[in-house]
Simulated assay, not measured.
Amino acid sequence: MIEDFTTVNNGVGEVRIGNNSLIGLGNVIIGPITVGNNVILAQNIVASGLNHNYTDTRRPIHEQGVSVAPIVIEDDCWIGANSVITAGVTIGKHCVIAAGAVVTKSIPPYSVVVGNPARVIKQYDGSRNEWVKTI
């Protein structure tokens, strides 16, 4: 994972970005988030480690504070344009997240995911040395 990285604090949580990672135009990245090495983030991605609390129906949502849960994007991932990654999610090494996917749960390494909510459609099978459909 990340040995050397750039860190920025955006007021909510740290944003840590590994070596050789590319961040596309128009992205909204709200920490805490760690982006590994050699990651490609395409355009208009929203990745937010922040959630607004809303459980008390007697109070306006804006008065209930926020909760945070870190996002981790491991090395060698490609996140497609217009994707959304929600708080608390880990995306495993060498994953491909299709454009427009909404990732609400952690994704195992070497997976391809699509949709809203995102679901795994392929995984790499090392014993066969190929990508295999899961659905």
Rank of each mutant, 00 (worst) to 15 (best):
12 V>H: 08
86 T>A: 09
76 D>V: 04
93 K>H: 13
26 G>V: 15
35 V>F: 07
53 N>G: 06
107 I>T: 10
132 V>P: 13
110 Y>N: 14
3 E>K: 11
2 I>L: 15
41 L>I: 09
52 H>P: 10
4 D>T: 14
22 L>F: 13
1 M>P: 13
76 D>C: 12
84 V>G: 00
91 I>Y: 02
107 I>P: 01
93 K>A: 06
3 E>C: 09
56 D>S: 09
110 Y>C: 13
74 E>M: 10
131 W>G: 15
131 W>N: 08
60 P>A: 10
19 N>M: 12
88 G>N: 08
33 I>G: 00
79 I>E: 00
121 I>Q: 10
129 N>P: 07
89 V>W: 01
6 T>C: 07
20 N>C: 09
38 N>E: 07
97 I>E: 02
24 G>S: 05
16 R>T: 10
114 V>P: 12
22 L>H: 15
79 I>C: 01
94 H>F: 09
62 H>F: 15
45 I>L: 01
68 V>C: 10
52 H>L: 09
52 H>R: 07
135 I>A: 14
116 N>H: 06
88 G>C: 07
8 V>R: 14
89 V>R: 00
76 D>A: 11
49 G>M: 09
22 L>V: 09
120 V>K: 07
133 K>Q: 11
31 G>H: 05
18 G>A: 08
113 V>P: 03
42 A>W: 05
7 T>R: 11
28 V>R: 03
51 N>V: 12
92 G>N: 01
39 V>F: 03
67 S>M: 11
54 Y>M: 14
69 A>H: 07
114 V>C: 08
79 I>D: 00
33 I>F: 00
132 V>E: 12
47 A>P: 01
134 T>Y: 10
26 G>A: 12
6 T>E: 07
125 D>C: 08
86 T>Q: 06
107 I>S: 06
14 E>Q: 13
75 D>F: 10
77 C>W: 05
18 G>Q: 02
132 V>Q: 12
126 G>A: 11
117 P>D: 14
121 I>S: 04
66 V>C: 06
45 I>R: 00
